[in-house]
Design a protein around this nucleic acid. Structure first.
Lengths: 127, 127
DNA sequence: CCGTATCCACTTCGATACTG
DNA sequence: CAGTATCGAAGTGGATACGG
């Protein structure tokens, strides 16, 4: 498993592809960022607004990860004030499809899950 | 996630379905357990052996979550020694499909991701 | 055999203040 | 505008010992 302390050296040592990929994109922020970038390029603060309740620290960290893993590109325009644009790469776009399948599943089965939880709580039998 | 509607009343929304679902099954253990149960019913220790490097505490916790969310069933046979069998529910099985799409994506793009990381480390330009 | 309880190390995340 | 540095709070996961 990899650790991501700020800017420190990062060691890759993950034999299992599924674990490796899911460690990175399995968290809510990565998915939400990729979704936000699906329609097109966005700037840092635009992403903040789009996602809503992410701190800029988490946004910054997660963007760096996604860039590092090749899901997005970061383009700096050396203007004043600076402008930075984030966009999906081909790899990032290719990930959108399985991801949206998952999102669709989540949406259509969310009610069933909530109901299962309610049932579980209602029946504290031999637990 | 909280939203502030006009005025100052704070509304606690039902969590976003995607976040809700991903918080539960987004971790490696849940996915690995569901994969392990895909071929059929398994007992606790069989699951331990199948997954390999999970502690029984994490296995126990994650199984309980999955049961609570309706992905799996837990059947206790009151024998001596006790026997407990875990199996997928219909909901759990229905999740297998989008999940395996994701797994397939992870496997076929893992190399590209690793290469992207290598490139990133090799080019510490304006970072 | 199938767990739970307890304790502890390690991460992760958010808030805040600061920089170019 | 687009971040980074620092700090503390909260969460997560493992090891171990014990219970049914």
């Amino acid at each position: 498993m990899t650790t991501i302390s700020d800017g420190e050296e990062i060691v890759f040592e993950q034999p299992c592809p599924i674990r490796d990929v899911l460690d990175r994109i399995g968290n809510q922020w990565s998915l939400l960022i990729l979704e936000a970038l699906a329609p097109g390029t966005l700037r840092f603060n635009a992403l903040m607004r789009e996602i809503g309740d992410i701190s800029k620290q988490m946004l910054s960290r997660t963007l760096k990860q996604l860039e590092q893993d090749g899901f997005i590109t970061r383009t700096l325009y050396p203007e004043v004030p600076p402008r930075v644009e984030y966009a999906l790469t081909d790899l990032g776009r290719s990930f959108l499809e399985p991801m949206q399948q998952l999102v669709a599943w989540a949406e259509s089965h969310h009610r069933a899950i909530v109901e299962a939880r309610t049932r579980y709580q209602a029946n504290p039998e031999q637990r």
